[in-house]
């Protein structure tokens, strides 16, 4: 295409070292005695709140207690849409999400070693939603918690949708004198419900 492309690639071809192989050993096992317990500990350490619940009705009840009388609630969990007062189907421009106070979104996998949850565009409906919302609730099933990132990537097809993200805790920063402040630009809080 452009001449820079050719000149860069030619310079690389000329200057690169002889081919070296990829390592055979690059994934490792994490043998936590209890991945569910490990996940909960890790998430709390990074500023998330976590509750293990038996079913969706319990989640519904807990959300009512944790976020009483919240307006501008967006829900992408099919069986919990009755908690929403905002219809995501009618949103065509992500800027319309600017006033969302609470988003309730299902996650695909949880990762015990770092508290992260893999969420794709398919679950979040709008890419901006888990970031622009003031508060975020993610819901996963206990059996989808994997020990570590190697195992997570074994199960994930990263390009299955156009966008996917690991969310680990609420948005945070320590850019002012290394003091941790929760609620930088993304969600101010994260509650994870684990259905078991």
């Amino acid at each position: 295409m452009s001449t820079s492309r050719e000149s860069i690639l030619n310079a690389i071809r000329k200057n690169k070292p002889d081919l070296l192989p990829l390592p055979d050993q690059f994934t490792f096992e994490s043998n936590y005695p209890d991945v569910l317990e490990q996940y909960q500990q890790t998430l709390q350490m990074i500023g998330g709140m976590v509750e293990v619940v038996p079913d969706l009705p319990t989640i519904s009840q807990r959300i009512g207690e944790l976020f009483p009388n919240f307006k501008e609630v967006a829900v992408t969990v099919p069986d919990l849409t009755y908690l929403a007062d905002l219809n995501l189907e009618s949103v065509t421009d992500p800027h319309e999400l600017e006033d969302v106070n609470l988003a309730i979104i299902p996650g695909r996998y949880g990762v015990a070693e770092n508290g992260a949850i893999w969420v794709t565009e398919q679950e979040m409906k709008h890419r901006a939603l888990p970031f622009i919302t003031q508060h975020l609730v993610l819901i996963i099933r206990a059996e989808t918690i994997v020990p570590n990132m190697h195992e997570a990537y074994r199960r994930i097809q990263v390009d299955e949708t156009g966008f996917g993200t690991f969310i680990a805790g609420p948005s945070k920063t320590a850019d002012i004198e290394q003091s941790l402040v929760v609620g930088a630009h993304g969600a101010r809080s994260l509650v994870v419900f684990i259905i078991k």
């Binding site: 990074i46 992260a116 990537y153 990263v158 996917g164 993200t165 680990a168 993304g186």
Partner: peptide, 26 residues
């Protein structure tokens, strides 16, 4: 990515991973 995301933030700030690790494909 499993290797690099496990190393990056632990080395940087001591967190197990950044709050957001976003994968853009389309």
């Amino acid at each position: 990515l499993g290797v690099f995301l496990r190393l990056l933030t632990r080395s940087a700030t001591g967190q197990p991973v950044t709050a957001y690790s976003s994968h853009f494909h389309r």
